[in-house]
């Protein structure tokens, strides 16, 4: 089915988007599934000629945000660090690898303590690698607002991490 094929192309990003906003992987998955169904019902409102990806990600983010509200506040995000399985010469020593993972875990935890809007703009820009223009489209804000939100979110993240930064 065409619609399913279309969704599958964006499913990974949709799941990551939902995971940025929810605190539970199952909740993120449900949010994506629900968003896909709602998007189908809303296809008539889809602007002809527009890009599909920011449109569907926006619906996913709205659904995930609504679910998070109803689920109440919980700590942690539905994002998990993958195991570092590099076994080549470029792989760091076991000690260094542990440090790298600890650093990432600290950053992920700090990210989880930010408010949802901050996580979303940082997630879109750095995790999903969306450009400023597309991020603006997904968030439904002007491009300049993305710049300022990103800057403020980074500042708040730095504060959460402490003056010592990532070191």
């Amino acid at each position: 089915m065409a619609y399913e094929d279309l969704l599958r192309r964006h499913q990974d990003l949709a799941l990551r988007t939902a995971a940025l906003l929810t605190h539970d992987a199952a909740e993120a998955e449900d949010a994506v599934q629900e968003a896909f169904v709602k998007a189908h019902a809303a296809l008539g409102r889809f602007r002809a000629g527009a890009a599909f990806r920011p449109w569907i990600l926006r619906i996913v983010a709205n659904e995930a945000r609504n679910r998070r509200r109803s689920a109440g506040r919980r700590e942690g995000l539905a994002l998990r660090l993958a195991e570092d399985r590099r076994g080549d010469d470029a792989a760091p020593s076991p000690e260094a690898a542990v440090l790298v993972q600890e650093r990432r875990a600290a950053l992920l935890a700090a990210l989880g303590r930010l408010r949802a809007d901050d996580r979303l703009v940082l997630g879109y820009r750095f995790f999903l690698e969306l450009g400023e223009a597309e991020t603006a489209e997904v968030l439904g804000v002007p491009r300049g607002t993305v710049k300022s939100r990103q800057s403020r979110a980074l500042e708040r993240l730095r504060r959460v991490l402490g003056r010592g930064g990532l070191s």
């Binding site: 990974d12 799941l15 992920l108 990210l111 980074l154």
Partner: peptide, 16 residues
């Protein structure tokens, strides 16, 4: 440095 670290973190996250 923080932005670089965020990029790195994005790449190190588990696939959903």
């Amino acid at each position: 440095e923080l932005e670089i670290a965020l990029h790195d973190l994005g790449g190190a996250l588990e696939a959903p």
